[in-house]
Amino acid sequence: MSKPAALFINKHHYSHFSRGGAHILPVTEVDIHLVTRYRAHGGLDGFADHPLPHVAVCETEDFDRWRDLCSWTLRHHPIDRVIAVHERAVLLAAEMRSTFSLPGMDYETAVRFRDKLRMKEVIREAGAAALPAFAALDRPTDLDRVDWSTGRKVIKSRWGLAAKDLYMVDSLDQARAVVAGLDLSGSHYEIEEFVKGRIYHCDSVVVDGEIRFASVGTYLTDPAGYSPGGVFGTVLVDDPDLLRRIRAMNASVLAALGLKDGTTHLELFRTDSDELVFCEVAGRPPGGVIPPVIQWQYGFNIVETQIRLDAGLPVTLGTGPATGTCGFIAFYPGGGEARGVDPGRFADLGVVEHIEHHGAGNGRGGVRHSTDFLDSYVLRAPDEATLMAGIAGIQNEYWR
């Protein structure tokens, strides 16, 4: 009997799907038709080591061409499923499922997870979480209807990712200056109240409408604060009461948005008064180095899980939480000459994995987005204090 077939719409480097010498695409179970970006942009990095029989490449920045190639593939091949794990591909994959009547996240659901304004409207209607005040920003005059007496605001793209296209403004005049440089046509922007607080994330696996897994972490720094020479990272949360509260918000939000099968990455604020305020949620696996942290702590690859769910395959979520805790620290380019950390020091610092990110920065010492890392270090430790001591040690040793 022939294998089922799936269209895999990809924007990651192909090497993203190799881990520990293994390839996570389920090629023995599914006949995969890959549509990816050009080799020059990493779409086929490492392809010779893990080839596929059906491959098409295109300039994925040309969205119409990308869509046309996916549609052509579905019209000319007997394909049962559509796979997508990159934020830029999730909406296109959902459009293809809805257009060709295929199972998985449909277009309407995907829009609720992709359009930050529509997302918050649905959550507000359901009363699923506390929200900052927000409004569409479709024309400059929309700024006049905002209450500026309450302080700082955030202007951001409704469709953005990795903390790009985000602007902090403290007054109407500052907002007008920002908006003067933006193209507001096409309903691409929103404005919302700035929330002061520590940022947490909850990463989930949903099967048949039930949350089967939910990990909670907190960022070491604000994702929007990425800059040359800066650091980023996350540490898992083990406070039982906080875990319960965040998982409860996560469950309410996902129920309101209507996800049936997939993985999610939710971000929220914890204010100084201990209020939990929703920020945003994506209907795909977490990015950056969060998946390796989850794998080291819980024993499964959450990116592979999304691929298998999209492909209609069963998933295994590991054996449960390991003892101790886990986290990572990452370094942005532009901080001078990177010495790195001597591998001989890994055991003392708790490092279990070092990830070198090729092509970081813009070639001039800049940083393009919140996961544009130069080097990342995943750590495991028996407790949070030991973990944080290891992170501090790495930070002290990294730069010359």
Rank of each mutant, 00 (worst) to 15 (best):
M1C: 09
M1T: 06
K3W: 09
F8M: 02
N10I: 13
K11G: 04
K11P: 15
H12G: 13
Y14K: 08
S15P: 14
H16T: 15
G20K: 01
G21H: 00
T28Y: 13
V30I: 12
D31F: 01
L34A: 02
R37C: 14
G42C: 12
F47H: 05
H50L: 14
H54C: 05
V55C: 01
T60C: 10
E61A: 08
R65Y: 11
W66M: 05
R67P: 06
P78T: 12
A84D: 05
E87M: 08
R88N: 10
L91D: 04
A93R: 01
T99A: 04
S101F: 00
P103H: 14
P103V: 04
M105Y: 07
E108G: 07
T109V: 07
K120W: 07
E121V: 05
E125G: 03
A130C: 10
L131Y: 03
P132K: 00
A136P: 08
D138L: 01
D142F: 05
D144C: 01
D144G: 06
R145S: 10
T150V: 14
T150W: 11
K153N: 06
V154F: 12
I155K: 06
S157I: 02
G160F: 06
L161P: 15
D170N: 14
D170Q: 09
L172T: 09
L172M: 11
D173Y: 00
V178R: 14
V179E: 07
D183H: 11
D183G: 08
H188N: 10
H188S: 04
E190S: 03
I191E: 00
E192W: 14
G197D: 08
R198A: 11
R198E: 15
I199P: 10
H201Y: 08
C202W: 03
V207R: 12
V207T: 09
G209Y: 00
V216D: 07
T218F: 02
T218G: 09
D222S: 14
D222C: 15
A224K: 02
G225F: 02
G233M: 09
L236I: 06
P240I: 05
A248L: 13
M249H: 02
N250H: 10
T264S: 10
H265V: 12
R270C: 15
D272M: 07
C279N: 01
C279H: 09
V281P: 15
G283P: 02
R284G: 08
G287L: 15
P291R: 01
P292A: 04
V293I: 05
Q295A: 09
Y298S: 12
I302S: 02
V303K: 00
V303Y: 12
E304C: 14
T305P: 01
I307Q: 05
L309T: 07
P314H: 02
T323E: 04
G324A: 04
G327P: 02
G335V: 01
G340E: 01
H354T: 11
G359I: 11
G359V: 02
R364D: 13
S370M: 10
S370D: 02
T371A: 14
L374W: 11
S376F: 08
Y377W: 10
V378E: 10
D383F: 06
Y398H: 13
W399V: 06
